[in-house]
Design a protein around this nucleic acid. Structure first.
Lengths: 138, 138
DNA sequence: TCGTGTAGTTTGATAGTCAAGGTAAAAAGT
DNA sequence: ACTTTTTACCTTGACTATCAAACTACACGA
């Protein structure tokens, strides 16, 4: 097997494990993956237009409308008018959504610590550098 | 911001990009993420029992039943009886499913090549080593 | 053989998803 | 200024994913 094949398998395995972990975590909180995904994006971007959020999530605005309805009903997000463009609607986290986001973000950090526990400082730095390069190439 | 936070962000960004890529790829083929996920697992494991496949996918057997129905109707997989245990059912790829799996697998390899194009041989090897360690810790 | 556990299916309820169509507002063209 | 086109969001209809719970058939141990 080529080096590329092996590396691909390692990436796929890593990806699957991350996905599975996220899935279990959010299910315990009564949320779904798309819902927490929206909260994650809003948590790092303050207010976003529906259109922008939909694009970042990779879904249509129609899909986002119903998703946002549910999150709004659950008290996680808030819609507010866009001053400059009356077609647009801004979405932002409520206080409750902020709390949830921060909790979830801390879980991510804890996971990072857990899985990198066997790495040396050099390796951890190397890993960060490599990820930065990969993200640029995407 | 701590090193852990930064590393977490890099991992999340990498994960999101992988998910988005996979999403776009399978949509072009008229498949869904869970469907291609099942094909990927079956592609590397020959025949699996429904129960085993469900566990690897992280879904209940009820969910897998309807998923398998659709894949079977689409000619991607085949159910066949389990010789030793008549409660169990084995699932395996059809020839058509095999072709699809190999095509998709090759796309993964191509993606690996594309995103690691900026890495040196040393970095690529280091990346593989680190991923192996992380996958073990999971 | 009888009770308990297991594999898979079915069903009902809830979510996610898209495409297509609708409405209102902005932007562009004339 | 007026018309046309584009954009942003919502709605609807159809399909898929998902789980929990109930159900069937089989296995396995006491």
């Amino acid at each position: 097997m080529s080096d590329t094949n092996k590396l691909t398998q390692l990436i796929v395995e890593f990806f699957e494990k991350l996905a599975s972990w996220e899935h279990c975590i959010v299910r315990d909180k009564g949320l779904t993956l798309p819902q927490i995904h929206a909260l994650e994006i809003l948590g790092t971007h303050k207010a976003l237009r529906m259109k922008e959020l939909a694009e970042r999530m990779g879904v249509t605005t129609g899909t986002l409308t119903v998703l946002a309805d549910r999150l709004e009903k659950g008290g996680m997000i808030r819609r507010k008018p866009h001053k400059a463009d009356r077609r647009s609607i801004l979405v932002e986290l409520t206080d409750q959504g902020q709390v949830l986001f921060k909790e979830h973000d801390e879980l991510h950090n804890q996971l990072t610590r857990d899985i990198t526990v066997g790495l040396s400082d050099t390796e951890r730095k190397m890993f960060a550098d490599i990820l930065e390069k990969l993200n640029r190439e995407f």
